[in-house]
Design a protein around this nucleic acid. Structure first.
Length: 198
DNA sequence: CCCTGATTCGC
DNA sequence: GCGAATCAGG
């Protein structure tokens, strides 16, 4: 494959959206993430946030088997990446209370007389967890079903009957189908179910 | 181990 | 210009 205008355009678009090189590579097809990264650099849009000044004065090169001396000790900007996503560590896993909760905080989009799947009645999911979810949904990769892998969060968002449907796509927890935040709402201890007077 | 981007250098 | 191999890091 070659870098046609269209492909370059898509590359720019996705890179601008903060998509990872590997995702862009998958989308484009026929190229590896290395190719994408290489192209990104050649296009000169490596820094996603203009790292003004403050370039880490790192030699940036100390290979082990590369006897080629550097004719020009060029100083390169080693950007700390602002787009890094750190996730806190707190998973409450006990019993699987509602893995079938296929509808997180959802809008009330009702397509056209479609009998919506049984709403899990937005059960007694802790408000914290819900808040957390809606927050991470902003950072979601929004991947399609075809892009799901063994390690991407398979949490569905939106209504499958509409265009506004995608999967979270964030890195899933090892051995889990969801990312950390979604694991939090999908797997709940039985204890969280506090039944009040009835 | 999974992933990320960055760099080098033969092609 | 291209991108695999490699490096460096989370």
């Amino acid at each position: 494959m070659s870098w046609t205008d269209e492909r370059v355009e898509l590359l720019k678009k996705m890179w601008g959206e903060g998509q990872s090189a590997s995702q862009i590579a998958k989308e484009l097809g026929g190229v590896t993430r290395n190719a994408v990264i290489g192209k990104v650099h050649r296009l000169g849009l490596s820094n996603r946030a203009g790292a003004t000044g403050a370039p880490a004065a790192k030699p940036a090169a100390a290979p082990k088997a590369k006897p080629v001396p550097k004719p020009k000790p060029e100083v390169r900007a080693r950007t700390a990446r602002p787009a890094a996503v750190d996730m806190p560590e707190d998973i409450a896993e006990e019993a699987e209370a509602a893995p079938k909760a296929a509808a997180p905080a959802r809008r009330q989009i009702i397509p056209a007389g479609q009998p919506l799947p049984p709403q899990p009645s937005t059960n007694e999911i802790p408000a914290e967890a819900l808040a957390k979810v809606s927050e991470i949904e902003k950072k979601a990769k929004r991947i399609s079903v075809m892009e799901l892998t063994e390690r991407t969060c398979k949490w569905p968002v939106g209504d499958p009957a509409t265009e506004d449907f995608w999967f979270c796509g964030l890195p899933s927890q090892p051995g889990k189908p969801y990312c950390e935040a979604h694991v939090g709402v999908a797997f709940q201890p039985m204890s969280t179910r506090r039944d009040r007077r009835r």
